[in-house]
Design a protein around this nucleic acid. Structure first.
Length: 416
DNA sequence: GATGTGCCTGCTCT
DNA sequence: AAGAGCAGGCACA
């Protein structure tokens, strides 16, 4: 295999508070980044982008493919025919600026959210440097169709299979091949659904094939991209078509629901991470837990997680966090992830206040919510996390009057 | 309109 | 050791 051109390592001054790639690349936004020997790699926009970080700089390197052929899904790769391309033509720095939305000051926003929300103020300090990544809309769409009833590790495996079997090969890192994400056309074929089932996609196989067909054949050309936030255009965006008008967040959300396998949560993931709508707040089971536990949702009226509640939770977060609410949500989401719970525990040890005091309250409040899977603390480790999570409860004054609410026994969902 | 249930798979915990 | 429970939901009745 021929080796493509590799740039030198270059660097951007960027503190770990502004961006922490070890957190951001693992927190369930993108499923394709691979860490190899302390460097992160991703095939994107027809190149392999490599990242590493120290406290002062983000270091980046680009590996271009050896040949210009076979870029069905990346027609915009900028390459000269000459053997050497001057680094001047390399747009990787712009790509990074766009991908991590570096025009925003994370510290400033965290401060803002902390001022308006005590719970955020309590949680966020251990989770600085998280940013929303601006990813390709199509990739985000398919990635999050895969995410239903699923976990990050398995979603990543599935997305890698999509790239391996249907995406263009960009190059290698060591022995590891890197494929870009396949376009809609590539996933539309006749045998795709059954092949994906064989590969372990389950019922999502149908959603992917169907959505690929819809986007590629039913929708007008450029439809998905037209839903992009005009104030936040994509990296390689064409000039917006003035005849089409400027989409709003609500319109984009609604349009996405017409696809197969796309409900409100997936639509919001695509809005937030693929279409640049910072106010989109994807409410999944974790965020619903957070909303109940820390923001007093579902305690009085509706206990089940209906569409109405979905909208109410999003609206509430938009109210307290503003036009980048999805970003703030992502910080709390990450703080709530099991895979990052070690940091929460460290935090609990630091913040040792009255944990025993409130512990009973929170477990009481959390234990009784039908309709949404509510994992009970199973290990002492988990229990520690639960205890930690009570800390901010005293700040938010969780509603402990739930005794007045009828306590039906939680019905277990029994698959026949 | 709201609510309940089935769905693929792989892993953990009992 | 086998089997229930669960994991970043959606479609359909």
């Amino acid at each position: 295999m021929a080796i493509g051109r590799v740039s030198e390592w270059r660097k951007l001054p960027l503190s770990l508070t502004e961006l922490c790639i070890d957190t951001t690349l693992r927190c369930g936004q993108s499923f394709r980044w691979q860490k190899i020997e302390n460097e992160w790699h991703l095939a994107i926009h027809g190149r392999i982008l490599s990242l590493k970080q120290d406290p002062e700089y983000l270091h980046y390197k680009t590996t271009w493919p050896a040949s210009t052929g076979a870029f069905s899904d990346s027609p915009k790769v900028k390459r000269e025919d000459s053997a050497e391309e001057s680094p001047v033509n390399d747009d990787t720095e712009q790509l990074l600026n766009h991908y991590f939305s570096l025009k925003h000051d994370a510290a400033e926003l965290y401060e803002l959210w902390s001022l308006s929300d005590l719970n955020f103020r309590k949680k966020a300090p251990k989770f600085t440097g998280i940013r929303i990544m601006s990813q390709d809309a199509w990739e985000t769409l398919i990635g999050f169709i895969c995410s239903s009833n699923n976990n990050i590790s398995r979603i990543s495996q599935m997305v890698h299979k999509l790239c391996k079997y249907y995406g263009p090969l960009i190059g290698h890192v060591g022995e590891e091949p890197f494929h870009d994400f396949p376009g809609p056309q590539a996933l539309m074929g006749k045998g795709v659904e059954s092949h994906l089932r064989e590969l372990g996609f389950g019922y999502r196989a149908k959603y992917i094939a169907e959505t690929a067909r819809l986007v590629s054949e039913e929708k007008p050309r450029g439809w998905l991209e037209s839903l992009t936030n005009p104030e936040n255009p994509g990296f390689d965006a064409e000039e917006p078509d003035p005849a089409r008008g400027r989409a709003t967040y609500k319109e984009a959300h609604e349009q996405l629901l017409s696809l197969s396998g796309v409900g409100p949560k997936v639509a919001d993931c695509v809005c937030l991470m693929g279409l640049g709508w910072g106010e989109a707040v994807p409410v999944d089971t974790h965020v619903w837990q957070i909303a109940q536990r820390d923001y007093k949702f579902g305690k009085v009226k509706t206990k089940t997680f209906s569409k109405t509640m979905y909208d109410a939770v999003g609206d509430h977060f938009r109210k307290i966090w503003g036009d980048q609410a999805g970003w703030a949500q992502s910080v709390l989401f990450t703080a709530n992830l099991k895979s990052f719970s070690d940091r929460s525990i460290a935090k609990a040890e630091v913040d040792d206040v009255k944990v025993e005091d409130v512990k009973v309250k929170i477990e009481d409040a959390v234990s009784d919510t039908p309709g949404v899977p509510m994992p009970k603390p199973r290990s002492s480790r988990k229990r520690q996390v639960a205890a930690l999570e009570t800390v901010k409860v005293e700040v938010e004054e969780v509603d402990t009057t739930s005794g007045t609410v009828r306590r039906s026994k939680r019905r277990k969902v029994q698959p026949s």
